[in-house]
């Protein structure tokens, strides 16, 4: 009897794309199933602002 991992590997993959849509769009264009999750680093990735927000938000 195949294990869960073996079952998983026999199915078509579903890609979860976090943040950068471009990565997923090329996979989707190639026929793969893609789920997009909108995400961006806090404060646009600015570490000083992110540190400020740690105390305030």
């Amino acid at each position: 009897m195949p294990t869960k991992v073996e079952n998983l590997l026999q199915q078509r993959p579903v890609f979860l794309i976090v943040g950068v849509r471009g990565f997923g769009e090329s996979l989707r264009d190639a026929g793969h199933q893609v789920v997009f999750l909108d995400w961006s680093p806090p404060a646009g990735g600015d570490p000083k602002l992110a540190a400020l927000l740690d105390d305030l938000l």
Binding site: P42, A43, G44, L53, L56, L57
Partner: peptide
């Protein structure tokens, strides 16, 4: 203003 900066 906190949420504006956090969400960019």
């Amino acid at each position: 203003i906190r949420k504006v900066v956090h969400a960019n």
